[in-house]
Amino acid sequence: KFNKELSVAGREIVTLPNLNDPQKKAFIFSLWDDPSQSANLLAEAKKLNDAQAPK
């Protein structure tokens, strides 16, 4: 279960257009550290992506 959630969340995070590479890497490392938090980490990444969207 975690492997699928981890890969789905990881793929989504790397495609978020408004995150820079260090931010993406930080989220990916957090996913590896605790795969059970993949849904929460993906939600946080999406929030940050939205907040950094060009206005």
Score class of each variant (00 low, 15 high):
K1D: 09
K1P: 12
K1E: 14
K1H: 11
F2C: 15
N3I: 13
N3E: 13
L6P: 05
L6N: 04
S7V: 14
V8G: 08
V8N: 11
V8K: 12
V8F: 10
A9D: 03
A9Y: 11
A9N: 05
A9F: 10
G10R: 14
G10Y: 15
R11K: 12
R11I: 10
I13P: 01
V14M: 15
V14H: 08
T15E: 15
T15S: 14
T15M: 14
T15D: 12
L16K: 00
P17D: 04
N18L: 01
N18T: 01
N18G: 00
L19H: 00
L19C: 02
L19G: 01
N20D: 09
N20I: 05
N20E: 06
D21G: 13
D21C: 15
P22D: 15
P22I: 14
P22G: 14
P22H: 15
Q23H: 01
Q23G: 01
K24M: 03
K24N: 02
K25E: 13
K25M: 14
A26Y: 15
F27L: 06
F27V: 00
F29C: 12
S30H: 13
S30C: 14
S30E: 08
L31Q: 02
W32L: 12
W32R: 04
D33M: 14
D33C: 13
D34G: 02
P35F: 04
P35G: 02
P35W: 05
P35I: 04
P35Q: 04
P35L: 03
S36C: 05
S36M: 06
S36E: 09
Q37N: 13
Q37G: 05
S38R: 05
S38I: 13
A39W: 07
A39T: 08
N40M: 10
N40L: 13
N40W: 13
L42H: 01
L42W: 04
L42N: 02
A43N: 08
A43I: 10
A43T: 09
E44S: 06
E44I: 11
A45S: 02
K46Y: 09
K47W: 08
K47T: 06
K47Y: 05
L48A: 04
L48M: 06
L48V: 07
L48Q: 03
N49A: 02
N49K: 00
D50K: 07
D50R: 06
D50P: 00
D50H: 07
D50E: 13
A51C: 11
Q52H: 03
Q52T: 02
Q52E: 03
Q52D: 03
A53E: 10
A53C: 06
P54Y: 11
P54H: 09
